[in-house]
């Protein structure tokens, strides 16, 4: 039995190469437009692309809220409100989701393509 790739083999390798290329493109950014967090504060609006992990401080009506961006999602890590409902809301991920700290006047809406839900009920 000689090791001679058949046409079907070549096709399979080509398909695998294409699939892997697509997966890597998707994994290392450049996978099309990303979801962006629109952070509305009393002082104005700021955009945070969710493909850039990091911790961001935004000034609100009461003081500084801390937002964390990781794995394509955003959440409140801390906020100067008493209730901390914003922190407990956890991660907002898909386009259309929203987290907010109302006492501090900070509303984070996710905009972008796709998004599984048109609205979140809670």
């Amino acid at each position: 039995m000689r090791l001679r790739p058949t046409p079907a083999d070549l096709l399979a390798f080509a398909a695998a190469a294409a699939l892997l290329a697509a997966l890597h493109l998707h994994a290392w950014g450049g996978g099309g437009p990303v979801v962006t967090a629109r952070v509305e504060t009393p002082a104005g609006t700021r955009l945070l692309p969710l493909d850039r992990p990091g911790t961001y401080r935004v000034r609100g009506a009461l003081g500084e809220s801390v937002l964390e961006v990781r794995d394509g999602a955003v959440r409140f890590v801390d906020s100067p409100c008493r209730s901390k409902i914003c922190v407990r809301s956890g991660w907002a991920r898909g386009a259309g989701e929203l987290v907010a700290c109302l006492p501090n006047g900070i509303v984070v809406t996710l905009t972008g393509p796709g998004g599984e839900y048109d609205a979140i009920n809670f």
């Binding site: 407990r88 809301s89 956890g90 991660w91 991920r93 989701e97 599984e116 839900y117 048109d118 609205a119 979140i120 009920n121 809670f122």
Partner: peptide, 26 residues
């Protein structure tokens, strides 16, 4: 978080996610 819909989102109905009450997403 409390909502009402009219009609549809184009070709499909409006899609609603119900958030988990103790955090952790939808």
């Amino acid at each position: 978080g409390d909502l009402r819909v009219l009609g549809r989102h184009g070709e499909r109905p409006w899609r609603i996610g119900i958030r988990a009450p103790r955090g952790g997403g939808i």
